[in-house]
């Protein structure tokens, strides 16, 4: 690039298109997420992952519930279903069973998947339905303005925990592992490359997979808890994150304060027959499938 004068020095070459534009609905962008929010990074990683894996885009289906993360389904240009609050997992269950050829991913938030939708997560994981659940955990209900949720750490401030949160949060990877998910990992939105690789792995893996993404929410969580803007939250992740694939369940607990580490990694990678595997196996044994 040739410098055209003092002002142009260091200027980055300007273009109109991005290499992942074809995976996104251009007529719906820019997205609604706040500056400093990590949802865009998580979406880019997903777009990159579905482009890289050896599964045709037309077989990819993306579902979400309600909330900030719930909007992802509207931006990615694959068959996408923006369902009711907390119900994306059972919707995905029906979709996958009715057409096992589809690669089905549920991308939603912590409140959607684990408060209102908690029971559905429990049972889809238990059944080992061959779907991928990606949870963006920003520790609060962002869309409604920063209320306490099922992952809000003890003592954290939100608009409905004005004196600090009295509740214990869920430990998502521990929960998923206990339920029998065949693949469980956690990254922050700063760990883009790990996250993207984990997504590729989950998409190709047979069985119920779970990825938790720790994500900055400068407006709903960062500011009230003095973690600052998105950039400061990511600096905090850089400082406190520890990759530990063999972490024990109590090490996975997130405190998001003081000197407590944020333990990330690929925690579980195993095999277990899926719901459809068992169905086929037993029906075949009874002569109902030839």
């Amino acid at each position: 690039m040739s410098a055209k004068g003092a002002n142009d020095k260091g200027r980055i070459e300007t273009v109109e298109e991005h290499p992942l534009d074809h995976i996104l609905r251009q007529d719906r962008l820019p997205h609604i997420w706040c500056p400093g929010c990590g949802l865009g990074s998580a979406m880019t990683c997903y777009a990159q992952a579905i482009e890289r894996v050896d599964i045709p885009l037309k077989k990819q289906v993306l579902l979400s519930g309600i909330g900030c993360t719930g909007r992802i389904a509207g931006y990615v240009k694959v068959d996408s279903y923006h369902t009711t609050h907390g119900r994306a997992i059972p919707f995905a269950t029906g979709l996958k069973i009715a057409n096992p050829e589809l690669c089905v991913t549920v991308f939603s938030g912590d409140g959607d998947l684990f408060a209102i939708g908690g029971n559905h997560f429990l049972h889809a994981a238990r059944r080992n339905i061959d779907i991928n659940v990606i949870c963006v955990n920003n520790f609060n209900y962002g869309m409604t303005g920063g209320q306490q949720g099922p992952t809000t750490p003890v003592e954290a401030r939100t608009t409905t925990t004005r004196y600090g949160n009295f509740e214990h949060p869920l430990n998502l990877p521990h929960l998923a592992a206990a339920l029998g998910a065949v693949y469980v990992s956690r990254w922050t939105t700063l760990h883009c490359r790990h996250l993207e690789k984990s997504m590729e792995k989950a998409l190709q893996k047979r069985g119920f997979t779970f990825i938790e993404i720790i994500c900055p929410c400068p407006v709903g969580f960062g500011r009230p808890n003095k973690l600052g803007e998105g950039l400061e939250e990511l600096r905090y992740y850089r400082e406190k994150s520890v990759i530990k694939n063999d972490a024990s369940w109590d090490e996975m607990v997130l405190h998001m304060r003081g000197e407590e580490p944020i333990v990330v990694g690929d925690f579980v990678d195993t095999e277990r027959p899926t719901y459809l595997d068992l169905e086929e196996q037993m029906l075949r044994a009874k002569g109902l499938i030839k």
Partner: peptide, 25 residues
């Protein structure tokens, strides 16, 4: 907007980390 810092013109290694982390594509 970001720009290329002084003296860093030849330092990009095409790792594409900026692409993955940019929330706005």
């Amino acid at each position: 907007l970001p720009k290329i810092a002084d003296g860093k013109e030849d330092d990009c290694m095409n790792c594409n980390f900026c692409m993955l982390i940019c929330p706005e594509l």
